[in-house]
Amino acid sequence: MSASADSYYLPHGTPWSILGSLGLFGFMLGAGVWIDGWNLLGPLIMGLGILLLILTKLGWFGAVIRESESGVYNQQVDRTFRWAMAFFIFSEVMFFGAFFGTLFYARLFVVPWLGGASYMFYTHALLYPHYRALWPTNGPAHVGGAFSAMPPWGIPALNTLILLSSAVTVTLAHWALKAGHRRKVIAGLVATIALGVSFLLMQAHEYYHAYTHLNLTLHSGIYGATFFILTGFHGLHVTIGVIMLSVILIRVLRGHFTPEHHFAFEAVSWYWHFVDIVWLGLFIFVYWL
């Protein structure tokens, strides 16, 4: 098959989606069985599901890459991918929006109210007369015991630097790709991946530190909850980003992409920038303010 500028490319028949759905189903079913604490069947089904999902993704993206390399994708397909990626990232923004919204709602409303502010006077007076509304907090019942907040100017600041520089390196790689300097592309990507991995290592260390030294855990009230859900999902996205960057690196090593035609590269770099910007939000609102 080939395509010219005035026609569309249409794939025909795909085994991947049903397998992907089965994989997702296994994943979720297994997770449910596991988390309900029934027996070892849970992890087993879940593992099979995840495996199937990974295989599916490999097959699916493999097919897309082959088609892309064989040149059947014209500009229109390229535009399609761009829009799709943009809206996918938008949906991710909204996903994080739910957690940021939670953080703001807790900090701006719930905690002051519990402390007696505004119209929740009676709540404070009747139920929590000794509670003082200060952030960070683990709530009127001090659930999880005394803890310390994660100070911003240690690892988090360093991590900010790391991610910001990784944004630079990925952009350098992009420029290099457009200019056709393959070696520089590879260097830029390797640097980005390395920075991403070191970010993750640092964060793992930070979590370890939080659990062992600060007594900052998932149980640490609303502070711990919002802290870990925001940084945790961010970390998960960094991990996904690193995997995607690695795939791109492999593709570059295999000689994929041309200065004009490299949507996959751009999509991943958009994604990386998105992860980066989320982190800035995290740094400001979770760690700093």
């Binding site: 807790a106 719930v110 519990l114 683990n138 709530g139 009127p140 855990t217 009230g221 609303i222 502070y223």
Partner: peptide
């Protein structure tokens, strides 16, 4: 399952948070 307190006041969360979300 994981002991967070998004929706319980004891930990500084709120059941109304869920209603808002």
């Amino acid at each position: 399952f994981f002991g967070t307190h998004f929706f319980s006041v004891a930990g500084g969360g709120s059941p109304l948070l869920w209603e808002n979300v």
